[in-house]
Design a protein around this nucleic acid. Sequence first.
DNA 1: AATGAATGAGCCTTCATTCAT
DNA 2: AATGAATGAAGGCTCATTCAT
Lengths: 197, 197, 197, 197
Amino acid sequence: MARPTNTDARRAEIVEAMLRVMARRGYARASIAAIAEEAGLTAGLVHYHFRNKQAILLALVERIAGVAQARFEALSASATSPRARLDAFIDAHLARGEGADPDAVACWVALGTEALAQPEIGAAYGRVIAGQLEALTQLVRDAGAAPGDAPRVAAGLLAAIEGAFRLAAIVPGAIPDGSAAATVRAMASGLLGGEDR
Amino acid sequence: MARPTNTDARRAEIVEAMLRVMARRGYARASIAAIAEEAGLTAGLVHYHFRNKQAILLALVERIAGVAQARFEALSASATSPRARLDAFIDAHLARGEGADPDAVACWVALGTEALAQPEIGAAYGRVIAGQLEALTQLVRDAGAAPGDAPRVAAGLLAAIEGAFRLAAIVPGAIPDGSAAATVRAMASGLLGGEDR
Amino acid sequence: MARPTNTDARRAEIVEAMLRVMARRGYARASIAAIAEEAGLTAGLVHYHFRNKQAILLALVERIAGVAQARFEALSASATSPRARLDAFIDAHLARGEGADPDAVACWVALGTEALAQPEIGAAYGRVIAGQLEALTQLVRDAGAAPGDAPRVAAGLLAAIEGAFRLAAIVPGAIPDGSAAATVRAMASGLLGGEDR
Amino acid sequence: MARPTNTDARRAEIVEAMLRVMARRGYARASIAAIAEEAGLTAGLVHYHFRNKQAILLALVERIAGVAQARFEALSASATSPRARLDAFIDAHLARGEGADPDAVACWVALGTEALAQPEIGAAYGRVIAGQLEALTQLVRDAGAAPGDAPRVAAGLLAAIEGAFRLAAIVPGAIPDGSAAATVRAMASGLLGGEDR
DNA sequence: AATGAATGAGCCTTCATTCAT
DNA sequence: AATGAATGAAGGCTCATTCAT
């Protein structure tokens, strides 16, 4: 009773530390010891707050997806047209500037590989993707896509976003300066019928 | 002279075995022992033919990129217009059917993560991407992209391709049936000015 | 604070275990597993306390040199003449009886070989030898060696000491009973000009 | 029949190659592959000529001891006094110049460690030392040592020689320039009664 | 004689996890 | 909550040795 619980704060710190370490080394080499050091804690304490290493990764999936979602909501708030809301989605993921976190991007890329190999991570990752796909499908539908086309268009745009993460994270310079968001917007325009915003 | 060498064949077998194991488990969990077993060899022999585990991965990068390149050249041979050659590039990577290898796709996705953490892999991966970007830039230029736009368009299309790999490999069903190639072709049309194929 | 540290004691135990194993088998065959068993620990724990095998060897160099130095200081305390202090140095290294440790001698011999092959060990070994040479040079100077001769005399005596270790450790019986200390004392007398022993 | 046997030459080459590699890396790290490469052969062939790695080491003991013995005999041939023959022994081992081989010295030092751990090597090394001790005992006796003292004196001088090898090989500069032979000669003089040569 | 593939054992090291304190 | 010791299981890699050719 005496000591107020700091569990939530500690857990967030640990997740954040894993984000940093994993962006640099990948999941397998992100040892608990390294994560603990990054967070200024001891390895034992990390296991006090998380059942195992996978549990941290699961929390990390939520954390990254949550930040992206929040960013979308923030940008979306000032959007007045369906098309503007679609652009907000694209910008939430790809625009440079405030809120953009290269480590999170690298981490998300690395995370995909774990989703491939660890069913639990695959499920969590799949849930995030499904949610984004659903949102995006609605957005493109609102923006004028033919109802039957919407799922394909949404999948294409999400693929372009995820692919842009990959190229940007792995091959510096592969994507010209800050063109990612603008290019995906243009793709959206093309897929929606070419009409301008 | 006394004994004929079989190194090339063995190396190919080992690379192929790594492809299979890695598609399932990722790089870190693709132990030499598991690779050897998949290939029907002993772990010692694997190290006789490859200096270390990374060397197998490096060979795998070349192998996957080479197959994709060969597939493009085959499809491209029967293309008669610039736009058809661009479609050949897209189809070479995304079309279902003969030559499509889901394990290679999963492996390529996993490989990106290693490219992030291992500089040597990053360099090899970067070289492949740079080559594809260069080819794609020329293709979109030939297909009528404004010269100044070509690099951006190429990067966008390659991102869409890589992202489609990711979604397809990690989240079954994320991309409707076999729509990936068609959707990216449509994106290309949009980016090139909306003219039909 | 929660748990008191026992690292220093454990490290000493491990170093001592390496001393025993290495005296019997040499460095290369003194596997971490064998050292751990000798110390009654697990191999994993050895690596918890030492970064790697070489680090144990480095600690062992200090340990052996430290014991010899301590023995010299103890014997030297009761020496009343310069010549007696020189004899104390010789006896500290070569006399039988209390404090003499055949395992340490064998280990020191084996250590020289590693000093030859591992630069870090060579440096540590070289530092010890340099210190002994310096001390010995001063001792023979005090005992009446011509100033210009002192370094040569010191080197000769240290060589005789190290060589006696070798012969004694490797070829039982090569050095008659316990004659080593007396013989080196006689060498010192000869080199110093034959004055009384 | 057609092919004249080259076994003896090959064996000598292999022993020589081990000498070079072992001087650099020590016995354990002198892999058969490294030895073969140094000799310009293949690992398989090395095992064709030697039953196992230890057998090469055994041959190496004989080779190094044989060279020293030959050098002694050559220098001894022109010696006219007992004392000169004793000096010839010392010079045969310690003098710089023609015939001195730093690699052989380093190797001999490393060899001692193996003698400690491998009984067969210990026996071979012991035989060499016993032979040298016997010869040296006779030499010091001829040079005027008191009969009862001769074994001790011989042991002391051999220790000084072996110790000089060690210091010279491991700690460059420990023994001033080329003073080793002269210093051991002086030691001999002292032990023999101080009379000059 | 010679080559090169193949084996199998062993070693150092890393690391997630547990647990006493 | 927190620390730090301890464990046990792998994993990558080296290497002497064998053997078919």
